[in-house]
Amino acid sequence: MDEEYDVIVLGTGLTECILSGIMSVNGKKVLHMDRNPYYGGESSSITPLEELYKRFQLLEGPPESMGRGRDWNVDLIPKFLMANGQLVKMLLYTEVTRYLDFKVVEGSFVYKGGKIYKVPSTETEALASNLMGMFEKRRFRKFLVFVANFDENDPKTFEGVDPQTTSMRDVYRKFDLGQDVIDFTGHALALYRTDDYLDQPCLETVNRIKLYSESLARYGKSPYLYPLYGLGELPQGFARLSAIYGGTYMLNKPVDDIIMENGKVVGVKSEGEVARCKQLICDPSYIPDRVRKAGQVIRIICILSHPIKNTNDANSCQIIIPQNQVNRKSDIYVCMISYAHNVAAQGKYIAIASTTVETTDPEKEVEPALELLEPIDQKFVAISDLYEPIDDGCESQVFCSCSYDATTHFETTCNDIKDIYKRMAGTAFDFENMKRKQNDVFGEAEQ
């Protein structure tokens, strides 16, 4: 370990593993360490099931009705991949897709007046949907046509809207959309967690709705994908990429100290040895004095023996409960997957309800979601602090990732990755940087 590296990475969460992969592909010498004996950090999948019970201090362990412990891979952080989103792009560019198998999530649902409705995925579904009345549908269709044709580089498509100054509230007004449709559009399509976006320039919202539609167009059922064997497969896929390009991995490796000289990182000390480096990437748990708390998320993992009611017996789905429907500031989400994804025993389902904490009784906040899941065989409640770095790391060369937020997709995580890359490399992130180099010394032969 007593060696000189360009970059040392602490923690094998998804953000850290993707950055480690990119740095290795770009010719950097990388050492990647984790104090845990497993990959994934906060974003790991726990197996066998006995391990999950232990982690949540349920000492009696799983009953026999849960089947074989080894058949379970339970995500600690519930997220899906947008089919046309940035993480899929990263997987394709790096060819990490060859280590993973994905399934399309069967449906996306939205909560309205105590019931759940399928988010329409085709024009026919939209016309048949009970989510809105006849005239509302016509106006909504006009709005969707506007979004589909919108091109930020072609003012002819703006229809009198200025993407940089017109607020989204004004765009909704222009198409005369009612409150329910606005809730549905902002939260189930643009996937905002709160209503803060309404008074911001509309460009980002329009682009988010386009991303949803384009992702949906790829597979038809929903815009989301999920990897077989759980999300823990993602960091491992990128760790393989890093290793192929010469990255060194050490799990179960305690970090005793991060060594600084004149305010700059110069190395990491572990078990009496020092590895030197020019730059350091880590998750917040490794540098508690360089991060601040930015809120909390509650996630309740529920094991069920039945599909969720009114989802047409889907073996995977997402449910969004827009905040307006339950008098909150932030949406509540449910991600459900099952034995069909090799993450649970035969006939079992895993539904994870999550939201940003707003009160001193977080469990009560998630109740509307839990009511949709009854009866629940077993619950595991996790309340996590969200951390963000206190500075950009440019001076110390210590670059810290943000905690995983309450969103049900990876777009915010990818933004964090691109942002850290830019601060480390001094140049904007470009997907081309992730391409495997042809015929290089570490390149794998085609399968």
Rank of each mutant, 00 (worst) to 15 (best):
D2Y: 04
D2G: 05
V9G: 02
L10M: 01
L10T: 11
L14T: 01
E16S: 04
S20W: 05
M23I: 09
N26K: 05
N26P: 03
Y39K: 01
E42D: 08
E50K: 11
E51D: 07
K54M: 00
P63L: 09
M66V: 08
N73R: 11
D75V: 07
P78R: 08
N84E: 15
G85M: 11
L87P: 02
E95A: 13
R98G: 04
D101Y: 07
V104A: 09
V119A: 10
S121T: 11
T122I: 11
T124V: 13
A126P: 08
A128Y: 15
N130H: 04
G133R: 12
F135I: 07
K137D: 13
R138C: 00
R138H: 13
V145R: 12
V145W: 03
D154S: 14
P155S: 09
G160E: 11
T165A: 11
K174R: 11
Q179N: 11
D183C: 11
T194Y: 15
Y212L: 15
E214K: 09
S215Y: 00
K221Q: 08
S222L: 02
G230C: 02
L231F: 01
G232C: 10
G232S: 07
S242R: 03
N252T: 03
N252M: 14
P254S: 10
P254F: 15
V255I: 15
V255T: 14
I259V: 12
K264L: 06
K264E: 08
V266G: 09
G267Y: 10
S270T: 10
V274T: 15
C277Y: 03
K278D: 15
C282H: 14
D283E: 00
D283C: 13
Y286H: 07
R292M: 02
A294S: 11
H306Q: 04
H306N: 00
I308V: 09
K309T: 10
T311R: 01
N315S: 08
N315D: 09
P322T: 00
Q325Y: 06
N327E: 06
G347S: 05
K348Y: 14
V357S: 10
E358Y: 15
T359N: 00
E365P: 05
A369E: 09
E371L: 03
L372Q: 02
D377A: 08
Q378P: 02
K379L: 04
S384C: 07
I390F: 13
G393N: 01
C394Y: 08
Q397P: 03
C400G: 12
C402R: 12
H409L: 00
E411A: 08
E411W: 15
D416G: 11
Y421C: 10
Y421D: 10
M424L: 10
D430G: 10
F431C: 01
E432P: 07
M434L: 13
K437R: 11
D440Y: 04
F442V: 13
F442M: 15
